[in-house]
């Protein structure tokens, strides 16, 4: 387990997450892509803390902040799904046609 292998795993998670966030039509699946990106970010942050940070506690703090971002993203995402469903009776990104120019 080296820093390089850790970062490559994190890069793979971020890449898969980006693919999901850009390709999925359903809002909840899109949010899963975002979560996967944050999963990779947390792994990279912990990897840097453990291998290059000499135990500086700010590395762990960064991961705690990413977890808070994740909780906020989930809550706002689900609220958006509910709000869009009320207005359009669907949870697809395509149903927000008012955002097209």
């Amino acid at each position: 387990m080296s820093l390089i292998s850790l970062l490559i795993v994190a890069a793979a998670l971020i890449g898969i997450g980006l693919y999901g966030a850009f390709s999925q039509q359903s809002f909840v699946m899109l949010m899963m892509g975002l979560e996967l990106i944050l999963n990779g970010v947390m792994l990279a942050a912990v990897g840097f803390w453990a291998m290059t940070g000499a135990g500086a506690p700010e590395g762990q703090l960064l991961t705690i902040i990413v977890m808070a971002v994740m909780a906020i993203e989930m809550a706002m995402g689900f609220a958006l799904v509910v709000a869009v469903y009320r207005g359009k009776q669907a949870d697809m990104t395509e149903s927000l046609s008012g955002f097209k120019h």
């Binding site: 890449g15 997450g17 980006l18 693919y19 850009f22 390709s23 999925q24 039509q25 699946m29 697809m92």
Partner: peptide
């Protein structure tokens, strides 16, 4: 249920 899948795959 996907849109612009090729672009998304390229970005990933």
């Amino acid at each position: 249920m996907v849109h612009q899948e090729k672009v998304a795959m390229g970005i990933g």
